[in-house]
Simulated scan of single mutants.
Amino acid sequence: MDMHVWLAYVVTAIVFSLAPGSGTVNSISNGLSYGTKRSLAAIAGLQIGLAVHIVLVGAGIGALVAQSALAFTIIKWVGAAYLVWLGLQKWRDRSTLATAQTVNQLSSMRLMRNAILINLTNPKSIVFLVALFPQFIDPTKDQVTQIMVLGLTTVFIDAVVMLGYTSLASQMGRFIRSDKIMSKINKVFGSMFMGCGALLAAAKA
């Protein structure tokens, strides 16, 4: 994988991880309830769930490339369109980040298990990865190596971002829970997703 392609993916993966979602809610909630240190198990659990999705998506993309170059090209166009659509949805998102602090102290294993299930049961992660990976994979080169690089990069970036959310939440809970701030965050990331989709579509024109 060329360095400039990988760097472009790093930027996209950072946007993907920063965008509020179920993993973000889990990280912030744990940060508020348990602090950063006790929440590390949950962050690890989120990455285990994400890694499972990456393996499933990677295997599917590899099989697709082997069978049909046309199908691979089509899914790249669909992926670019999906990024734009996701941006529109995020821009119009009116949901709030209702993180409740619980008095029940869960064990580290329970926190990890809950986090794994949160990511495993989130179909949006698979759909997003299916849309994202083909944009950065060269079908003429080794698929396994490229998918491994993208997968490891995704997990590392997401772990760092979730750690950041958890740490921030433990120190600035009231600010993070502000509905006004959450609305602004949704619009910022909605614009970023639409911009990524438009750029990817223009690059194929």
Rank of each mutant, 00 (worst) to 15 (best):
V160G: 00
S68Q: 04
S125C: 07
I181W: 15
G190I: 03
Q135C: 07
N119M: 07
M109I: 05
T99G: 14
V10D: 13
I61E: 12
S178T: 09
S39H: 06
P20E: 09
L152A: 14
L150C: 12
A201S: 13
I157C: 06
H4I: 01
D2M: 12
F193E: 03
F189A: 10
G58S: 13
A202Q: 12
L56Y: 06
L168N: 08
I147K: 14
W77D: 06
N104K: 10
P134F: 01
I147E: 08
L46A: 10
K187C: 01
A169W: 05
L46K: 13
F72W: 02
K180S: 05
L111T: 03
G45S: 01
K187G: 05
F189Q: 12
T96L: 15
V10H: 12
T166E: 13
I14C: 13
S167H: 14
G31A: 01
L106H: 07
G151Y: 00
I48H: 09
Q143W: 05
S107C: 03
F72R: 08
I54N: 10
G195N: 09
K184R: 15
I43R: 10
V55N: 08
Y34Q: 08
A71P: 12
A98E: 15
Q105V: 05
R113M: 04
I181R: 15
K187R: 15
T73E: 14
A131L: 11
A159L: 11
T96Y: 06
L56V: 12
L7E: 14
K76Y: 01
S33G: 02
T140I: 01
F72T: 01
G87P: 01
I43S: 08
I157E: 00
V55W: 05
A100E: 15
M162R: 13
L106V: 08
W85K: 11
V11F: 11
A80V: 06
S29L: 02
W6R: 14
G60F: 00
T24C: 08
A71Y: 01
P123T: 03
M112T: 02
G31Y: 03
S27V: 00
V149I: 10
N119K: 10
I118L: 06
V127N: 14
Y82Q: 10
G49D: 06
L40F: 03
Q47F: 00
K76G: 05
S125T: 15
A205F: 09
L7A: 14
I157S: 09
I61H: 06
Q47W: 04
K124C: 00
